[in-house]
Amino acid sequence: MGWFFNRKKSSQVAKDRLKLVLIYDRSGTTSNNDMINMMKRDIMQVISKYVEIDEQEFEMDIRSVKGEEEGMSSQLVANIPIKKIKQMVKNR
């Protein structure tokens, strides 16, 4: 009986599938690479205030991850190797 109540409308399935497939389609286009590079630059600026990072090895990407319960989901994955943590001087 469960299937009867849980059954999703096919239009909802279409919508969910489209949302997911478009993340990958969009991530392959140049405008998206630009977006990732811009995000990278911004994040680099913020992090550099606190830790010294290896800018060459800084990686960022959009990836698909298999969810625990059902289906795939998308994640923004960043790998930021740290060279040195700056000595924080407390203000005041």
């Binding site: 279409a14 599938r17 497939v21 478009l22 389609d25 286009t29 140049t30």
Partner: peptide, 18 residues
Amino acid sequence: PEVSSVRDADRIIGLLSS
């Protein structure tokens, strides 16, 4: 209003803006 057409439309919208 169908998956393959909407997907292609998205691609075209990206290409138009670039």
